[in-house]
């Protein structure tokens, strides 16, 4: 198995964390989705994800799953319970990118707590396209277009009413 040692610039992450190249590439792609592009940041983030994970990201999918879990934990701590749920990662990523979080470097994620101003900004940027639905049905109204004709039709036991119900 190919392996490389990944040095990190982040003091909170051990400098000996390493990942197999395919997993590292998958992690880089994942974090590029958050706007990170600097090699140092990507390296630090890979280390942050794999820290304490003994398999060194042997499978790219497993590494990405780990990264997703890390980010979800981080986002829920930043965004609070209000935005918890299945779409947390997508909405949180959007908010993070819209606030240009990557410009603050990997340290934004790896430090114990995010700065207050960023937390405020990212919370305000979470896209909430619509509130919870309260389902209702708009019943299609019956309009008898020609009541006199309808009377005649009924008298002759004729055809169906002259307004259709489409649904």
């Amino acid at each position: 198995m190919d392996s490389v040692t990944t040095l990190t610039a982040c003091p909170s992450v051990p400098s000996t964390v390493w990942a197999v190249p395919r997993s590292r590439a998958a992690l880089d792609t994942f974090f590029r989705g958050f706007g990170f592009s600097d090699e140092t940041d990507l390296s630090a983030l890979a280390a942050w994800v794999l820290d304490g994970y003994s398999a060194h990201g042997g499978q790219p999918q497993a590494a990405v799953a780990l990264a997703r879990a890390r980010m979800e934990t981080w986002l829920s701590s930043v965004l609070g319970l209000e935005h918890a749920g299945p779409g947390l990662l997508a909405r949180g990523r959007a908010a993070f990118v819209l606030c240009d979080g990557a410009s603050r470097g990997a340290r934004l994620l790896t430090r114990p707590a995010a700065p207050e101003d960023f937390v405020r900004a990212v919370r305000a940027a979470v896209p909430v396209p619509a509130p919870a639905q309260v389902s209702a049905v708009m019943p299609e109204q019956q309009l008898v277009l020609w009541p006199f004709g309808e009377l005649l039709r009924r008298w002759w036991r004729g055809a169906s009413p002259d307004v259709s119900i489409s649904r």
């Binding site: 989705g33 958050f34 997508a90 990523r93 993070f96 990118v97 819209l98």
Partner: peptide
């Protein structure tokens, strides 16, 4: 565009 991508996917995922 990273912003457009992230926003669009977030809106899509809000309507599973």
């Amino acid at each position: 565009d990273a912003k457009t991508h992230a926003l669009h996917l977030a809106l899509l995922e809000s309507q599973p």
